[in-house]
Every structure is written in C-alpha cells, then in structure tokens.
Design a protein around this nucleic acid. Structure first.
Lengths: 104, 104
DNA sequence: CTAGAATATATCAGATATGATATAAGTCCA
DNA sequence: TGGACTTATATCATATCTGATATATTCTAG
C-alpha cells in the first residue's frame, strides 16, 4: 500500500482520520476496500462507453446520484449495487471476476 | 436455468412465490443470485476445511448464526459479508474472482 | 459567452442487513 | 445414552444502504 493508494482511499471518505488509523486496516479489510474501488473504476469505464448515468440508473431502478456515488467509490455504496450496475452494462460474471481477481 | 437451479433458489427463500414470478427474474437478476450462491458454496467449502463457524465469526467480528446464514445462501446476507468471510478463510482476490467468474 | 446536458453533492425517510442472543436440532464418540 | 460440540432457526434493536429529491457544479456544443 503506497502513499497514493492511501490518499485515494482518504479522498473517497473511507473514514480514515489519521495515518495510524489507516494502518490499522487489516490486510483483509484493505483487500475489501480495494475490491470495491476496482469495481467502481470498472463501472465508470464501462458505463461511460455506453450510456449516461441517468440511463444506467433507470436500468437498475436506482437514481443518477446513486450511480455517481457508485462510480466515485463512495463508502455508502454496497458491493451488491456495484455488481448490479456492472451487470447492467452488459458485463458477464467472467468479466466481474476478472476485475476482482485483478486486485493485489 | 434448469429445474434444479430453480428448486435450489426457492429452497433458499429467494422470495419466489410462483413459477411465473420466478421467470420474471431478468438475466441480470438471475446472475446476481447465482453469484451469491456460488460465493456461499465457496465459503462453506473453505471454512469447513479450516475451522468452525464460531471461529470464523470471531475473525470477521460477526456471529455464528450469521455465518450459518451466509453458508446457506440466506437472502438476508450481503455479498459484502460473503466476501469478508471468504477473505477471512485466507482466500485471495484471485480466488474470489474465480468463484464469480465460474458463474454461468 | 451560454444554454442545455451530464455529473456531483446534500439530505432524508424508509428499507434492508447487521450482530447479538436464545434456543433448537443435529453430530459424534466415551 | 447422553453430554459436549457444532450448526441451524427465530427474534430483535440498531446500523447501514437505499432511492428520491433538490440543487450545485462541470462539461459541451453553438
């Protein structure tokens, strides 16, 4: 975990108040966060190539603001919603598996 | 989706009241459910080889009953908890990606 | 520039997932 | 056969996630 990753996580609001607190994330907790961020990035890439946030929101019976949060790695977004959204871009389970497997 | 899968899903309580209702699951919704079930099965296999449900519950700061639900594909269990649990068995993101990629 | 479209941020009430607890049911072997 | 251990089921108050809405900001074409 380098300084850039740390900054990225803090920027996304991963309730990190101090370096010490950050370092207390276990490897498993860190992996979980990285999985979420990888899914966020994948979602944004795929969605941008295909449609607007509002259009995707409709497809998954959600709202444009929630899609925005999903794409920006907001901590309030569940992995479940991320996967629902990615599936709605036409991704296969294989592709989703790839994204997760690509994490550290 | 064959008859066995359907029966499996109904057994797990995936709020399916009738065949018609079941068939109204979109391909994306079906994939999501199958991803969850695949993760459940993987969790159970891995955990059984290593430790007791109570031990795993401690590791993820959860409870034995919740681990039981996770392993039995209970609808109330989030993908997030499933992944947290699988990571706690020592699985890598690669292995989790494999499980998801193995779905349909 | 600038209007319209897309995206981001803020707020919130309701829905869902959570860990805890109690306890039932199953498993195993002394 | 029964007692320890493990897993399953039921209930619940609380925490977290949800979609909706309002609105601010950013982007893009003209």
């Amino acid at each position: 975990m380098d300084q850039n990753s740390r900054q990225e996580l803090e920027d996304k609001g991963w309730k990190i108040g101090s370096v010490a607190e950050f370092l207390e994330l276990s490897p498993e907790e860190t992996m979980l966060v990285e999985i979420k961020l990888a899914l966020s990035r994948s979602l944004k890439e795929r969605r941008q190539a295909l449609m607007t946030q509002a259009k995707l929101a409709d497809k998954i019976h959600s709202s444009q603001p929630r899609v925005a949060k999903a794409e920006n790695g907001d901590e309030s977004v569940s992995i479940e919603l991320l996967i629902r959204a990615i599936l709605a871009t036409g991704a296969s389970p294989q592709e989703i598996g790839q994204v997760i497997a690509s994490v550290g």
